[in-house]
Nucleic acid binder design. Sequence first.
DNA 1: CTGTTTTGTCGAATCGGTTCGAGTAACGTG
DNA 2: CACGTTACTCGAACCGATTCGACAAAACAG
Lengths: 335, 335
Amino acid sequence: MNIGEIARRAGVSRSTVSYALSGKRAVSETTRRRILQVVDEAGYRPNASARALAEGRTRTIGLVIPPAGRRLTPVQLGLVAGIVAAADRQELDVLLSPSGGEHDRSFERMVSGRRVDGVILTEIRLRDARAVRLRRSNIPFVSIGHTADADAGCWVDLDYERLIAGCVHYLADLGHRAIALVNRPQEFLDSGYGPACRGLAGFSAATAARSLDATAVCCADETMAGESCVGDLLAARPEITGIVTLNEVALPGMERALRRLGQAVPERFSVTGVVGRHWAEEFHPPLTAADVPISEMADRAVELLAERIAAPAAPDRHVLLTPPISLRASTAPPP
Amino acid sequence: MNIGEIARRAGVSRSTVSYALSGKRAVSETTRRRILQVVDEAGYRPNASARALAEGRTRTIGLVIPPAGRRLTPVQLGLVAGIVAAADRQELDVLLSPSGGEHDRSFERMVSGRRVDGVILTEIRLRDARAVRLRRSNIPFVSIGHTADADAGCWVDLDYERLIAGCVHYLADLGHRAIALVNRPQEFLDSGYGPACRGLAGFSAATAARSLDATAVCCADETMAGESCVGDLLAARPEITGIVTLNEVALPGMERALRRLGQAVPERFSVTGVVGRHWAEEFHPPLTAADVPISEMADRAVELLAERIAAPAAPDRHVLLTPPISLRASTAPPP
DNA sequence: CTGTTTTGTCGAATCGGTTCGAGTAACGTG
DNA sequence: CACGTTACTCGAACCGATTCGACAAAACAG
């Protein structure tokens, strides 16, 4: 079933069918109705490839996620779901590409095959080869997180520096004097992953400003790692009374380690940080934390990308979010 | 940059360029080299839409996941990641469609716009509108899980009936006399979700066969729900000494409830079931359970789909997996 | 040296849409 | 009634690939 067949059945030309469906030119009421009826009966929908070829756009966006092997964190997962849902609202389809490094085949297929009108990059690095590639190919893109050159490109991000600093000040205000940052894995820091780097920067600056006894450690994205990390940390520095974290995957393990060490939360020990709301609520007791506004980030990213696709020459737009700290039950003055 | 431009630069016709790249007809060594060099310099890659139109296939598969709003479980997430990776290995792209019900726009776009060569359905119901739709449109598809009519269609599934029965027998062999099944949410059971229904069937049959005191309950896919579910369960039936579950999301909550109730695992209480390996290992103590072989399922599904696309008329193939119970540390004879 | 293959290349048709320019018929106006 | 508009519709060109049949040149056989 194609447009020619519809045209034949309705007794009109192919162009008239096209105009009747798109509304881009006037079509008399009677023919329009006849065409729509034929279309309905046949269950006709234009072939996406043909339409993409003719229109020069695919009505599809690419979503680049970390490569397989690396497990997605719950926040990333939520982001994917949110982006797909937001795209659906704009009648956009989503092509998934797991690519991190330089020469990823699916990324290359997507970009040089012009399979998509635009791309959303997740887990972007401060210097990111994929962003460079997209810019060179002149393909609109929006990143979740930003590169070293913050002014270049469109992005949606959290102000990790300020958020983590806010957590530090919050603990300091409660009276804590020795606190630790449990960061994402070391290799993320090394490769210039924004949240890890800027979070650390915020932690260092704020602890210095308040003259706190500060310790920053990295921790693999694993429950187990969280457990051993906190165990080691408190063994080495028993004076620590509070933790700030942005490693949500490690949270359950941290909870377990604190319980094992008899560090009741929040009576004897405080925990806070920046994590997805859902995971903050599953902590025991519920975590006082800045909640990552996942679906807002997804919505804004798709929105920005859609604008960008519509007006590729428009100036870059940025969205920097600073969600408030949600007071729950994991923080208190030190004993 | 298109094939015509490449042809012009290499001083040959467009068809020769096409043949040189596809190898579908012989091209002399010298021209082939010249063409490849031009292609390399220009960084040319055929336009995917044009190619799809001409070839009649898109080299893309659709992946249908539960609609946004419903949170993906870790196993589903792993499945998505696994499928994308497996597809990438076959040079296939993946279009994501969040659709569950009848009239999902992205699903409709994908199917009637012929955007994909085939589809993988996840979280399929015993009677599934999407499967019916695909069959009607003559689009190859493979489902993860199967419909009521098991012989129809290609699918990859776990033998939940046997797996859960195996868990029951295992507990019975250890000496447990009163055990419970913690299933997926009630609405899954009502809507005919295979794992929930067949798991329950296996539980009922096996407990009857061993004349056990059996209780089956449903539990929302939430950590909290797991906690209250187990709390209620043991309040009502304190004689229960073991749980079989296929609700991995509820596991952390179940762990918490058992600890709160002083039911040490495995000394006083046993837990087992069918869950993703990763989540079995994160249970405390590590869960003795049949591990859902996520990446194997993903691989087999993509493999089956690729075969199906290549030979649409071939007979339906099924893959029913029965992973062994991995002995870890959460089961022991009752006190 | 002629006739037949084989080899390599080309032009044209095709896939299924969109869009532009032009043409026709009906209409309103002076 | 002639004329300029307006309202519809059509045919043809185009998007960028693939693929088929044809053809010329080279290679080979008799």
